[in-house]
């Protein structure tokens, strides 16, 4: 019954959208994503930017929403039902589509904290056992394979995710992020999220 409800909702959304040439080359379900993630996938309020994200990461997250392994409140509230009807092939198509859109940096962090954030990103804080982000997320925070691009994501999203890792929420399996995030205090999280929001 739930599934039928969702299908009707999906169809309603599909019928609703004004014709727009921007969507003609993308998979049909792109429209359902862009309601929240922004017209060009650049993110909107709590919904993160999808544009330019690593396709393997997007695919793995859709899977983790489907399997309910990514369990932070907004994921539970929005994404679990949003992807319930998205099969593996559609997930791949959506991932490839959004990954191919050029990302724009949110640039909404605190500029004065960006230099401190950059230092933590590149070097970590070895004396306090804070690991370098660069080792996994790359020199320009571009990510690789299923390790996400962080550069240019919105400050509130980055901050919230970094806080949630150490609050016991989960994402994929085998990620070191809960341990990494546990070593970060509020000041380090603000600095990192600020720096990353400006990275192109």
């Amino acid at each position: 019954m739930k599934r039928i409800g969702l299908t009707i909702l999906v169809l309603a959304f599909a019928g609703w959208t004004a014709p727009s040439s921007a969507w003609e080359d993308g998979p049909a379900q792109v429209r359902n994503c862009t309601w929240c993630h922004g017209m060009a996938g650049q993110g909107y309020t709590v919904a993160p930017r999808l544009a330019g994200q690593r396709p393997d990461y997007l695919e793995s997250q859709i899977k983790s929403f489907r399997e309910h392994t990514r369990d932070n409140p907004f994921s539970k509230q929005y994404m679990w039902s949003a992807v319930a009807a998205v099969g593996p092939l559609e997930a791949r198509d959506l991932a490839v589509y959004f990954a191919s859109i050029a990302p724009k940096p949110a640039s909404d962090g605190d500029r004065q904290l960006a230099a401190r954030g950059r230092t933590i990103y590149l070097e970590g804080i070895p004396e306090a056992n804070v690991a370098s982000c660069y080792a996994c997320h790359g020199p320009n925070a571009e990510g690789v394979r299923d390790i996400p691009r962080l550069g240019g994501l919105a400050f509130p999203y980055l901050k919230m995710r970094l806080e949630q890792w150490s609050q016991g929420y989960h994402s994929g399996t085998g990620t070191p992020m809960p341990t990494v995030a546990r070593s970060l205090g509020p000041a380090e999280i603000d600095a990192l999220a600020s720096y990353l929001s400006f990275v192109r």
Binding site: I125, A128, N129, V130, S166, A181, R182, S183, L184, G185, P186, A187, E188
Partner: peptide, 8 residues
């Protein structure tokens, strides 16, 4: 309880 850089 707060995680902090000086805690560990």
């Amino acid at each position: 309880e707060e995680p902090g850089v000086a805690a560990r």
